[in-house]
Amino acid sequence: MSAWELPQSLTVGNKEWNIRSDFRVALDILKYFGDPNYEEDEQWMICLDILFKDFASMSPKLYQEACGKARWFLDLGEEKTEETQSPAFMNWEQDAGLIIPAVNKVIGKEVRAIPYMHWWTFAGAYMEIGESLFSQVLSIRQKKQKHQKLEKWEQEFYQKNRSMIDLKKRYSKEEKQKQKELLALFD
């Protein structure tokens, strides 16, 4: 496949499998990868079921290869290793309200109103986000994670917008239940 093409299928087990390539599908998959209520193997099965149109007819012998191809697709055709993984500075769900306006600005229209946009097109626009509220939030998050000093205006912005800037920890149902039980002890 050339860099000038957008994949609509992935080769698994020497067969072309049609995929759902719209950006909303990819974001839905990424949501499950961030959900602590699912084990990693469950997240991958959900990913394959969502991504591959005919997943139900895929042999379980092909699942591992299919996971590799799904990762390649979600990573925009790049082979990523553990060394290339960076710490999380953003969360697609939490930051959606910041990302969409910034991507809209790059694309020049409301992307949610477009019936179909390939994941790689959306991600390309995401990577081109320039000066925006989202880029300010990311900059402050990066500085905070690296324990770097914030500029005075960044400190003020952070104090006024903590809920927007701080990445929220997601808890599994079991963790939430344990927290409730612990709080009940203090009532």
Rank of each mutant, 00 (worst) to 15 (best):
D95Q: 04
K146R: 11
K146N: 10
S86E: 15
L133S: 03
F122Y: 15
L133N: 07
E83L: 12
D95M: 12
Q145P: 00
K146L: 15
Q145I: 03
I140P: 02
T84L: 11
I140K: 04
E131D: 12
L138W: 09
M117Y: 03
S86C: 06
Q94V: 06
E93L: 14
S132Q: 03
N91V: 10
S135P: 00
W92K: 01
W120R: 04
E128N: 15
K144W: 05
E82L: 15
K105D: 12
K152G: 00
Q85Y: 06
K143F: 12
Q145F: 14
P87Y: 14
T81N: 08
V137E: 07
E128I: 00
I129S: 00
G97C: 01
R141D: 10
V103P: 03
Q148R: 06
Y126F: 15
Y126C: 04
K144Q: 10
Q148D: 05
K152R: 09
I140L: 02
I107M: 14
T84E: 12
W119H: 04
R112E: 08
K149S: 09
W119M: 07
A113C: 08
N104H: 04
K144M: 15
A113Q: 10
F89V: 05
N104Q: 04
K109T: 09
H118A: 02
K149Q: 13
S132M: 11
T121Y: 03
K105T: 11
L150H: 06
I100P: 01
G124S: 15
A96E: 14
Q142Y: 08
A96L: 13
Q145R: 10
M127T: 13
R112G: 00
A123T: 03
L98M: 13
M90Y: 14
Q142T: 05
F89K: 02
N104A: 06
K149P: 00
G130N: 07
V111D: 04
I99A: 02
E151T: 10
W92L: 06
I140G: 01
D95V: 09
Y126R: 06
Q94E: 14
D95P: 03
W153F: 13
Q142W: 08
I140Y: 09
A88L: 11
P87W: 12
L150M: 02
Y116A: 01
I99K: 08
K152H: 10
K149L: 12
E154I: 11
A102M: 07
W120L: 07
G108I: 08
P115A: 11
A102P: 00
V106D: 08
I114K: 05
R112F: 10
L133R: 11
L150V: 06
E93S: 13
K109V: 09
P115D: 13
I99S: 01
P115Q: 07
E83V: 11
I100N: 05
N91K: 05
W92N: 02
I129F: 12
T84N: 09
D95N: 12
F122I: 08
